[in-house]
């Protein structure tokens, strides 16, 4: 087989690319493959394709959102105050500009995150020790409260009372921490 780029040398690199279900086959010689960028050979293509897929996902967005809106109303340009990235720009590059973007585009972001992370939209992993501040404590309290409800439902009141005391203790600590932080 002859290389499809230069039509001279024999093709030594064969690969199939599937984008949005469309299959494309490539047959290149090593030289042309190199010129076309070595991404294919090094397997760095995934970042590239994830980005494309993402842009695809984001582009669907307006169709869902636009349904209830007045189509003639001029859309306000949503822009991050910190880094001046607009939502349109984000769709193009698939990358945020700064930490505040997550706050700015929060409403648009949630459905996207669900789609990317199979339905999940809230973090349940590690919390940074230093800047995490009271999050640890609050999560702890939430856990205990859930536990407390369970115990009440099971009518294990003795255990429930213990939990209640523990929650109170932690809440006092939380209040103290918050005051101390101010």
């Amino acid at each position: 087989m002859i290389c499809q780029e230069c039509n001279q040398r024999p093709a030594t690199l064969h690969f199939t690319k599937v984008v949005n279900g469309e299959k494309a086959e490539f047959h290149l010689c090593e030289k042309c493959a190199q010129e076309k960028g070595e991404m294919f050979m090094l397997g760095s293509g995934s970042g590239f394709s994830i980005n494309n897929l993402l842009a695809g996902l984001l582009n669907i967005q307006p169709a869902f959102q636009g349904a209830g809106q007045d189509p003639f109303q001029k859309e306000k340009v949503l822009q991050c105050e910190q880094c001046s990235l607009t939502f349109q720009q984000f769709i193009k590059v698939g990358r945020f500009g700064c930490a505040s973007c997550y706050e700015t585009f929060k409403d648009q972001l949630n459905p996207i995150l669900r789609r990317l992370h199979s339905g999940n939209s809230s973090h349940s992993g590690k919390i940074p020790a230093r800047i995490g501040g009271t999050i640890h404590l609050r999560r702890n309290i939430d856990d205990l409260k859930n536990h407390l409800k369970e115990m009440i439902a099971k009518e294990e009141f003795e255990r429930a009372a213990e939990l209640r005391d523990e929650i109170r203790k932690l809440e006092r600590q939380l209040n103290a921490d918050q005051k101390g932080g101010e």
């Binding site: 993402l54 698939g94 945020f96 930490a99 997550y102 995150l113 990317l116 999940n120 940074p128 230093r130």
Partner: peptide, 23 residues
Amino acid sequence: EEEADYAFDEDIGFLTSCPTNVG
């Protein structure tokens, strides 16, 4: 983390450039 303030959000975790890595 002892000396760097990480970009972190209570709800969605560690903030990353690409939303495919967030959390």
